[in-house]
């Protein structure tokens, strides 16, 4: 039996929605955020509409049962039922969307705010547009020295950073779950892999309080490391972050 066209469209939409939930929430165990799922479904609906209405025949098959429901005298009972249920459904849906809740409002937090052009730390002024890691050059010039600097950076990390950012640099340190927002996961391709070393220097040296207003609400618990580490220690730990994760800092020059 051929499935009516309108039902096909409804099944496609239901199938895609269920598919998203099944794949992400159940199989991959990484929930798909409702904000994203809504956006996805909006355009899945648009795509489905396009496929089912670009030809006259198909449009007719989609529209005719709806027209019949509204106009056909023999469908009076069904029409009455639908006309009662539909407003009730939308009423219920609207109520669900707007009813008061204790849930904190959603945040559009800027995790990587733009850095200032320059920053004052360690009693000096650094131009972040041109700032480079002074130890980076040893990667090629003196690999042994570089490896030793990375090790020193690792020591700094273990003593100071791993409690929050984790011993695998994945943001899963012992204290991580006590913080909101949780510490950054440096293994994620969207964090340090996208940034220049000067940016990391700024973020580490000035910590949460050094975030610009753009990044509000800045709930970051990141300490102001300028008060606890030396300039060299910060540069070394930056070397370690990139070395451990295997990423290269953002740069505009080819190797």
């Amino acid at each position: 039996m051929k499935i009516p066209r309108l039902l096909q469209a409804i099944l496609v939409l239901g199938g895609v929605y269920g598919g998203f939930v099944l794949v992400f929430d159940v199989i991959l165990e990484q929930v798909i955020p409702s904000s994203l799922l809504n956006m996805y479904m909006f355009f899945v609906v648009a795509g489905t509409y396009m496929v089912f209405t670009f030809s006259e025949e198909s449009t007719e098959q989609i529209v005719s049962p709806i027209k019949a429901l509204v106009e056909d005298p023999s469908k009076k009972m069904l029409r009455n039922v639908v006309f009662v249920l539909l407003p009730l459904f939308f009423g219920w849906f609207t109520y669900q969307q707007i009813k008061p809740s204790f849930e904190a409002p959603l945040e559009l937090r800027t995790i990587h705010p733009a850095p200032p052009a320059a920053v004052k730390v360690f009693g000096k002024r650094y131009n972040l547009l041109t700032l480079e890691n002074p130890f980076r050059k040893f990667e090629k010039e003196d690999p042994e020295k570089f490896a030793s600097l990375v090790r020193e950076g690792g020591d700094v990390y273990v003593k100071n950073c791993q409690y929050c950012h984790g011993d695998k640099l994945d943001g899963q340190g012992p204290y991580a779950q006590g913080l909101s927002p949780v510490p950054l996961n440096f293994q994620d391709v969207g964090t340090i892999a996208q940034l220049q070393e000067g940016y990391l220097f700024w973020r580490i040296a000035t910590g949460g309080p050094g975030l610009p207003k753009e990044a509000t609400p800045w709930l970051s618990a990141m300490p102001v490391w300028e008060d606890f580490l030396t300039e060299d220690e910060i540069w070394k730990v930056i070397l370690f972050l990139y070395d451990y994760t295997g990423y290269q800092p953002r740069s505009w020059e080819h190797e």
């Binding site: 798909i32 994203l36 943001g171 899963q172 927002p181 949780v182 994620d188 964090t191």
Partner: peptide, 8 residues
């Protein structure tokens, strides 16, 4: 477990 989605 954080603001980033592992797959998305």
């Amino acid at each position: 477990g954080g603001p980033y989605h592992k797959y998305l």
